[in-house]
């Protein structure tokens, strides 16, 4: 019979190499923490860099010129671009650029202080319109209608020729707030840099020249009604036809009891009694008149 004693149970003999390896532990560099967190550090750093880059990109590409400086209660609702006509298929002029680079401008027969003429406005010029300071509703730097004083350099002749000829002399002096455009900007002193929005937040007192192309169903209308962003009283207008066959009408929001502010986006709606309707967004940014084309 096999006999046993529990006292025979003995501790294990440790191999010598185990002990030798264990004695090397103090000489090992303690980089366990660094190794453990290295991936997190890299990930965190990469995330920070990416987020910063995205934020900077967004900031650089964000146009703050359209941000109204008036308190929201004092301003009409500034809305985003939406030029979709409600009834008939109509396209509205693009008016979102608030500070266009002046690359082309009329060389001759410039109206009063119409030194910054957007390319869009030059594309559909009126031929027999009254003294239109050829400027879009967005980039108008024309003289306010209240100060009808003509520029010393620009002729005070009504614009009768199409604005297709580019300006040869660039503007060098950007307009500053409070400076009359007629004094600050002349055909000979066009700035090379994009103009900043003058009169930001101030009331817009100019007129809006509405141009209706032949394609527009409102072209045939004897009378059209214009209203801006459901404020004030809609104004009834009688369009006229110029030599180029473009129908146009003048709309003065201030006369209709509307107070528009420069730098804010508004929706101009024109319609007639037959139910045809066109809409366009515009942003008055200058002290002069505005021009909106309905194609």
């Amino acid at each position: 019979m096999k006999e046993f004693d529990f006292s025979q149970l003995q501790s294990f003999k440790t191999p010598g190499e185990w002990i030798e390896n264990a004695l090397k532990i103090p000489n090992k560099k303690n980089n366990s923490t660094i190794l453990r967190f290295r991936s997190y550090l890299i990930g965190t750093a990469a995330s920070v860099v990416i987020v910063t880059a995205v934020a900077l990109t967004l900031l650089l590409h964000t146009d703050f010129s359209n941000v109204p400086s008036q308190p929201p209660s004092a301003l009409p609702a500034a809305v985003t671009e939406n030029t979709k006509p409600s009834g008939n298929a109509l396209t509205a002029p693009s008016l979102e650029k608030s500070a266009p680079t002046v690359s082309e401008a009329p060389k001759a027969a410039l109206p009063t202080a119409s030194s910054t003429v957007a390319a869009a406005s030059a594309s559909v010029p009126p031929s027999s319109v009254p003294p239109v300071t050829a400027a879009t509703a967005v980039a108008s730097v024309a003289a306010p209608p209240t100060s009808s004083k003509p520029s010393t350099q620009a002729p005070a002749v009504p614009l009768t020729t199409p604005l297709t000829t580019p300006l040869t002399t660039p503007l060098t002096t950007p307009l500053t707030e409070g400076t009359s455009p007629g004094e600050a900007a002349s055909p000979g002193t066009l700035p090379t840099q994009p103009l900043t929005v003058p009169y930001q937040g101030e009331a817009f007192h100019g007129k809006i020249f509405i141009f209706i192309s032949e394609k527009n169903p409102l072209y045939q209308s004897q009378y059209i009604t214009a209203s801006v962003s459901s404020c004030g009283t809609p104004q009834k207008l009688k369009p006229q036809t110029n030599a180029d066959g473009v129908r146009w009408a003048v709309f003065q929001p201030s006369a209709a009891g509307m107070t528009l502010y420069n730098g804010c986006k508004y929706k101009l709606r024109i319609y007639d009694t037959n139910g045809s309707e066109s809409r366009a967004w515009f942003t008055p940014t200058g002290g002069g008149n505005a021009e909106i084309h309905f194609s």
């Binding site: 294990f12 003999k13 185990w18 002990i19």
Partner: peptide, 22 residues
């Protein structure tokens, strides 16, 4: 440099290696 219950690391390893191994 370090003492573990008045034992150096080497002494501690050599003394308790069998216990830990077991």
């Amino acid at each position: 440099d370090r003492l573990f219950a008045k034992l150096t690391f080497e002494q501690a390893v050599r003394k308790y290696a069998d216990t830990v191994t077991g």
